[in-house]
């Protein structure tokens, strides 16, 4: 019994603790990238954005959370009740589950599995079911049509993401996400040029730059971000597949969407920007722990994702 506990029970407890820790941190970060998204978009439109709740509106996301949770959930009478409530659950659980294999720093990963990147790919390809089931279970025309649209879009951009991943895998020779980061440390352009401390040149964003761009655009389409926001095209489809949703189920859809976006940021950081590695391999940079570099790179990618709709609007207006 004692041995059984130390062999199976204790690792389980540790893993549970790690998972809860990761989830709490992730949800906190999601609350603030939601805030950052709104602030950035407000700044683009020369507005102020959320600025009432807390200093500079910093607590806005939590106020929204309270509001969503305290509202009365409405279930349309003609809907498929089980599937209607199941769809947001799928979205949230899948997007959180994919984070289990993402190494946020050296050795900081819950499940260091051999097929890590394939696991992320599989889980993110399941995310489409949340959309399509939610749209169908609402038993209404608008959600159904927009669910079909966005599902078709998500499925088709999965292919290009897959091809980009294959390119990176050919360079690395492993499907393990930690191995991908190690490969960007061990060899690359900086070693060829004879300046090993300039490790930013080692990362795959430089040799695989076209792939990086393709992945970025596909990630926008995969997570239904503007300019690929066919799922929520407000002018035509009211609010996309979540028209019938309110209160907590709606919040779960939003949460799942933003966790998926943060997952795409993490994935781009690992595949193309060297994961937790410092940009320059010399003294002041190497003192900073890897998790900080990882977060900084993720936030940089998120900033570009957030700005993408502004660039799109500007180019659409000026052309």
């Amino acid at each position: 019994m004692e041995a059984f506990f130390w062999d199976y029970g204790w690792p389980l407890i540790i893993m549970l603790f790690q998972s809860v820790l990761l989830m709490v941190v992730l949800l906190l970060i999601v609350a603030y990238i939601l805030y950052a998204d709104r602030k950035i978009w407000a700044a683009v439109q020369i507005r102020r954005g959320p600025n009432v709740v807390g200093p500079w509106g910093l607590l806005q996301s939590f106020a929204d959370l309270l509001k969503f949770v305290l509202k009365e959930p409405m279930i349309p009478s003609g809907s498929d009740k089980f599937l209607f409530l199941f769809a947001p659950l799928i979205t949230v659980v899948l997007s959180l589950a994919a984070w289990a294999v993402i190494p946020v720093a050296q050795g900081w990963v819950i499940a260091d599995i051999n097929v890590g990147i394939l696991y992320v790919f599989a889980i993110s390809s399941l995310g489409v079911y949340g959309v399509i089931i939610g749209g169908w279970a609402s038993n209404s025309k608008y959600p159904f049509l927009s669910a079909l649209r966005s599902a078709a879009q998500m499925v088709s951009y999965e292919v290009s993401i897959g091809f980009v991943i294959v390119t990176v895998l050919l360079c690395v020779g492993s499907l393990n996400l930690s191995e991908i980061v190690y490969a960007q440390q061990a060899r690359g352009l900086a070693h060829v040029l004879g300046v090993p401390w300039l490790s930013i040149l080692n990362w795959y964003w430089l040799p695989l730059f076209p792939m990086f761009v393709v992945f970025f655009v596909s990630a926008l389409a995969e997570t239904n971000r503007p300019p690929f926001d066919l799922a929520e095209a407000e002018s035509e489809l009211v609010a996309g597949f979540m028209v019938e949703y309110g209160s907590t189920p709606y919040m779960m859809f939003m949460l799942g969407e933003y966790v998926a976006i943060s997952l795409m940021c993490g994935l781009m950081t690992i595949l193309f920007m060297g994961g937790w590695l410092p940009p320059l391999d010399i003294a002041p940079f190497t003192w900073v722990p890897g998790i900080v570099w990882f977060l900084l790179k993720c936030l940089l990618v998120f900033f570009f994702i957030s700005m993408a709709k502004a660039w799109y609007l500007v180019t659409a207006m000026t052309s």
């Binding site: 051999n114 097929v115 394939l118 390809s125 399941l126 399509i132 999965e158 499907l175």
Partner: peptide, 26 residues
């Protein structure tokens, strides 16, 4: 056989069944 498992999910669940679902729903 985790590679086969992931491939099954990606190919069948992620792509083929979505098209199935499309057709059946419509």
């Amino acid at each position: 056989a985790e590679y086969l498992a992931m491939l099954l999910v990606v190919v069948y669940v992620g792509a083929v069944m979505v098209l199935f679902l499309f057709v059946v729903m419509m």
